[in-house]
Amino acid sequence: MKTIGTANARTPIKLGLLLLLCPILLWLFLLVILPQLTMLNISLQERVAPRIYEYGFSNFIAFFTEPLYWNTFLRTAIMSIIATILTLIIAFPISYYIAKMLRGRAKGLLFVLCLIPFWVSELVRTYGWMILLRESGVISTFLQYIGLVDGPIEFLYTDATIMLGLVYSSMLFMVVPLTSTLDSLDDSYIEAGYDLGGNGFSVFWHIVVPHAKPAIVSGCIVVFMLTLGNYLTPILLGGKSSLWFTEQIFTQFITRFNWQQGSAFGVLLLSISSLIVWLGLKLSRQSFSKVMS
């Protein structure tokens, strides 16, 4: 009797849960899984004659045999990793200052000040940098005006400029999780660290960093993925020399109309970002579910 009762009681709950999950499952399937599978399918097709396709790996072989492709690919991955590390190094002191040094109104104010640039679109922000950095831009003109340089200087279209743009546009995604995590670290832990004889470094390394680790890892994952898949910033600030992998994908799909090759690149980009995120989690001994919670 009893078991039947509970079984009956449980079924509607399960159904309810399923109905509740329906939108998200549909969203996941239609917008994330289905396109990826389709892309994988397209990437495995090779053209044997006009309008005739067969399954094969030629698109992937093309990637590995053409140095421009995999050089761009590696360059994109390495630049993204550097951008992620730079973002972390710059964001950490800012977050620490906001979360631990400031009190009351100043704290909220500074936090909002960090968010304000992100109220305008990435495109507008990037154009902002271009106004500052181009040959006839604000900085160049100013340097000439105060007599530091003789002629106009072009700051745009260098790797350093791309890096600047990437770090700048990623800042928010690092500062927000770090600030809220550091804010939750009770001051007494830091004080206990000093009280037991620790100096600034040992308190930072043994107490602050372990506490902030989940936020550091999740911030890094988000920043890395956004940077790797960024299109606007490298193109606008790096120009023709940007050699960003998303640009290659764009070229294949739009300019060359070679969807098969483009899809292969897309699949490769997804694989490398998954691989690097997995490596990062392994190295920092964090689990994905813990980091994302």
Partner: peptide, 21 residues
Amino acid sequence: VAPNKRPVNMVFQHLALFPNM
């Protein structure tokens, strides 16, 4: 004299045992 240089130690109100250790 800084806290880490004083020959005193403190047991905090909520103990402040480091949770990651």
